[in-house]
Amino acid sequence: MAVTQADVIHVAELARLALPAERLDHLVSELNGILAHMDVLEKTDTSAIDSNVSVPVDSTPLRSDSSGPLPMLTSRESFAPSIRDGFFIVPRLATHEDAAADTAP
């Protein structure tokens, strides 16, 4: 399966990445190189190996509901680019010029 220029542009849009046109060919080639390596790996016969063979325990560890929060080593203000009334502030999204509360997917 080869990656096309259209695929790279599409994925960049989903991740909101600004992609300079001059980098496009290089990225297509790089991603196809990765996929070509996957094709090689795929040829390995793993039918006799349990997919969880490397897993050291039989289930993901669980924690009690009563465990408390982890402490913050530094305040939220120290790493948030902008904070106001306790809210983290980001630029208004272009899709929400007519403002309302909402959450994506």
């Binding site: 980001v90 208004r92 509360a101």
Partner: peptide, 18 residues
Amino acid sequence: DAGKSLHDRYPSATAIDL
């Protein structure tokens, strides 16, 4: 769940509550 985005709290900004 995701956090909550408030688009109408401040002008030209979105307020995030996580």
